[in-house]
Design a protein around this nucleic acid. Structure first.
Length: 372
DNA sequence: AAGCCGGGGTC
DNA sequence: GACCCAGGCTT
């Protein structure tokens, strides 16, 4: 009676066992490694994750190592990967696993799902891939593949659709083959059944694919469009130190929660709107006043201001960077969270991409000036 | 249900 | 530019 579903699973497994990519986290069944990889892979491509994964498990080989590590160390190993709450949640969960489960990743669904940063997808991925339990692991790939194969018009941006897909995916798992089947489904989505132009010619289950038969494979899945990012206008101060802080730049640490939590940045303020942003650029007096409120006395220098931009998922930062020099009396950044950083200390801090690029360029330029 | 949370590849 | 990616958390 389930001929269709049996066919789907059998063909997919056959294809996967021939075509599967050799990925670092596929070289063992170490549940901790699989867990780390699944967290890193959330909203992140395989090619991006590989070097991060290798560095991470090299530095934190076991759950215990991760649990005991300083948080800054963990954040540093996540630098540039994005969605930094993943790193903080992962470590919090590792501490939980160390204390409650003797350092072993639990194999009970309720326990795995209870770990910070582990949602329905990741719980299913860990239970199936590490422990071969017949749990679905439905991500964007899987929803795309199933939408097409069964020609489903349900909007995959709706949570209810994911729930339905989980029932469907669970019903497709071949007996005792959850690990390979779930990975096969995602592998097909990543390599063959791609978003824009699927390679149906190389698909092992193209023949009965209902979307393909209906000529609708490029229309599916249905997904409501995301709202476009909001513009935010900011001024950042690139303050050179003087005296004992010559050659260094004043930076500060971001708050413990929210956007880029606990990462380091250039001090900056937000402009009311685009117009105010353009106005304030003249001379940078508004910025000097704002910094003074934070106990920082600095004057704009002869170096000209320049623009930087950074795109996030839900907002766009437009930043005017104003070069400045610290007043003589400001030899120490006595406000908590502020520090002087030069090229030698740079790598000891965790930087979001936008400030990493900006500061790297700055230090390179200063080094060139010195050589001349 | 909608918004928040990064960064990069691709078309 | 728009879309997407081995999603989850908060409100």
């Amino acid at each position: 009676m389930n001929d269709g579903k049996t066919y789907f699973g059998a063909e997919l497994l056959k294809w996967y066992r021939k075509e599967r990519r050799d990925l670092p986290w596929r070289r063992s069944r170490n549940p901790y490694h699989i867990w780390v990889s699944e967290i890193m892979l959330q909203q992140t491509r395989v090619d991006t994750v590989i070097p991060y994964f290798n560095r991470f498990v090299d530095r934190f080989p076991t759950v215990g190592d991760l649990a005991e590590a300083p948080e800054e160390d963990v954040l540093k190993h996540w630098e540039g990967l994005g969605y930094y709450s993943r790193a903080r949640n992962l470590q919090a969960a590792a501490r939980e696993v160390a204390e409650l489960y003797e350092g072993r990743v639990p194999r009970v669904k309720k326990e795995v799902s209870g770990l910070k940063g582990v949602g329905p997808y990741t719980a299913g991925a860990i239970l199936s891939i590490a422990y071969d339990q017949p749990e679905p692991a439905v991500d964007g790939n899987v929803m795309r593949v199933l939408s097409r194969y069964f020609c489903l018009d349900a909007d995959i941006s709706k949570p209810a659709t994911r729930v339905d897909m989980e029932s469907l995916a669970a019903s497709l798992i071949p007996e005792g083959q959850a690990a390979d089947f779930n990975q096969a489904l995602m592998e097909l989505g990543a390599l063959i059944c791609t978003p824009k132009s699927p390679s149906c010619g190389g698909c092992p289950v193209a023949e009965p694919c209902l979307a393909r038969l209906a000529g609708r494979e490029k229309e599916l899945p249905v997904k409501t469009k995301a709202k476009k990012a909001r513009d935010v206008y900011r001024f950042a101060a690139l303050i050179e130190g003087v005296g004992p802080h010559a050659g260094k730049v004043l930076v500060r640490r971001r708050p413990d929660t929210g956007l880029l939590a606990k990462m380091w940045e250039l001090p900056h303020i937000e402009a009311a709107d685009a117009a105010a942003w353009e106005d304030l650029a003249e001379g940078g007096r508004g910025l000097e006043a704002a910094l003074a409120e934070d106990g920082i006395v600095a004057k704009a220098t002869e170096r000209s201001a320049f623009d930087a931009q950074h795109v996030f998922t839900h907002l766009v930062w437009h930043i005017k960077v104003l070069p400045a020099r610290a007043a003589e009396e400001l030899f120490v950044a006595d406000r908590t969270g502020y520090e002087w950083v030069g090229p030698e200390q740079f790598e000891l801090y965790s930087w979001p991409n936008v400030f990493r690029k900006l500061l790297t360029e700055y230090f390179v330029d200063r080094a060139k000036e010195k050589d001349e």
